[in-house]
Amino acid sequence: MITAAPHTTPGVLDGIVVADFSRVLAGPYATMMLADMGATVIKVESPTGDDTRAWQPPVREDMATYFLSVNRNKHAIALDLRDDDDLDTAHKLLAKADVFIENWKPGGLAKFGMDPEAVAERYPELVHASITGFGTTGGAHLPGYDLLAQAASGLMDITGEPESSGQKAGVAIFDVVTGLHATVGILGALQERQRSGKGQHIAVNLMSSALSGLVNQTSAYVAGGVVPTRMGNDHPSLAPYGPFAAADQPLILGVGNDRQFRQLTTALGASELADDERYATNPARNAHRDELRATLETYLQHRPASEWVEEFRELGIPCSEVFSIAQGVEFADEIGLAPVQLTGAEKVPTVKHPIDYSRSQVAYDKAPPTLNEDRQSILEWLDAEEG
């Protein structure tokens, strides 16, 4: 049976019902965040299912791990909005929901009476979140793919080695950022609804999220007139910052101020470098970054990366080894972050929700659903609510 709080200790969104008509990544990531926090999320899919069900390999017991990554704690129903009965069910769901989230193409829901104008008129208390690729004006016709946003925003142009043609990130980063922005917008609209009693439409898009998420790089251009360029793993404003060769493999240094640089040089047995006018300040280090790199690596070459990292960490110097995803998960576990949570009765391994609350519980109660898994219970719940 569908409940507003499937877990034993209420989450911060206990009692909130989310009608999730989104698919692929940005929307489902947002709704999983809401579900983890206690909201009841009804995942509405087409009869063929969310595209990511077919994005395999890799798989776990025939289910794509891509789909598993963003769909826990959700109740699933398949609806064909071209079918009158299914469309009626969709509207019943909107009538009972607090939040409606979708990432259809602009205008695509109008024929079903589920566009922003129709929703605002028919369900005035509903928070309606729309996710698009490039907004609803001049970019409304553009496909909403993360890769396109990485290219169009400039991320690819600043990623990679200087002599390369640009490189995408290793994950659909702007889908995730947009999903987080959608979550923030929804929470803000729910808070405002408590004061006004009215819902509202919020709109997020990949392109705006990308430009916002590029922070200092976009600011360099809009505030300073500087067009950032590819610098490999170097930082445009900090040095030393990036990978440096040790005896066996690179290690990462992230020196953010002059005090940290002095600590680093002392640990290397080269404290005189902190007083060298070429390196004494961050602007000076940036101006002489190539010389600085060569100098530091002559000292780092004497020991393996793991030994340097262990010593530097004890001294509070920002550093890390370069790990694989597997090593990263293992490292998080070693330092007590419990990165893997077994979800539902099936105990499906999923990645831990990123927020810890001192009093409220984060849910891991329901494994990512199979297609149409909860249809009967959802229909019964809607009928009971209607009665």
Rank of each mutant, 00 (worst) to 15 (best):
residue 1 M to L: 10
residue 2 I to W: 05
residue 5 A to L: 06
residue 10 P to N: 10
residue 14 D to E: 14
residue 15 G to P: 14
residue 18 V to P: 00
residue 21 F to E: 01
residue 22 S to D: 12
residue 25 L to P: 01
residue 33 M to A: 08
residue 36 D to A: 00
residue 38 G to M: 04
residue 38 G to W: 02
residue 40 T to P: 01
residue 42 I to T: 06
residue 44 V to D: 05
residue 47 P to N: 13
residue 47 P to L: 07
residue 54 A to E: 04
residue 63 M to Q: 12
residue 64 A to W: 03
residue 65 T to E: 13
residue 78 A to V: 05
residue 84 D to M: 00
residue 85 D to R: 11
residue 88 D to L: 05
residue 95 A to K: 02
residue 96 K to R: 12
residue 106 P to C: 09
residue 109 L to G: 02
residue 114 M to V: 11
residue 117 E to T: 15
residue 118 A to H: 11
residue 127 V to P: 07
residue 136 T to R: 11
residue 143 P to K: 01
residue 148 L to E: 00
residue 151 A to D: 03
residue 159 T to R: 10
residue 161 E to I: 04
residue 173 I to S: 09
residue 176 V to R: 04
residue 178 T to K: 07
residue 200 Q to K: 15
residue 203 A to G: 02
residue 203 A to I: 05
residue 208 S to H: 08
residue 210 A to E: 07
residue 211 L to I: 14
residue 218 T to M: 10
residue 227 V to L: 13
residue 237 S to T: 12
residue 244 F to M: 12
residue 245 A to T: 15
residue 273 L to D: 09
residue 274 A to M: 07
residue 278 R to V: 09
residue 297 E to H: 15
residue 303 R to T: 03
residue 305 A to M: 14
residue 309 V to S: 08
residue 311 E to R: 09
residue 311 E to C: 05
residue 312 F to D: 10
residue 317 I to W: 07
residue 323 F to Q: 13
residue 326 A to R: 14
residue 329 V to G: 05
residue 329 V to Q: 03
residue 335 I to V: 15
residue 336 G to W: 11
residue 337 L to G: 08
residue 341 Q to C: 06
residue 344 G to Y: 06
residue 348 V to E: 06
residue 352 K to W: 00
residue 368 P to T: 09
residue 373 E to M: 12
residue 374 D to A: 04
residue 375 R to M: 05
residue 382 L to S: 13
residue 382 L to A: 14
residue 386 E to M: 06
residue 387 G to V: 12
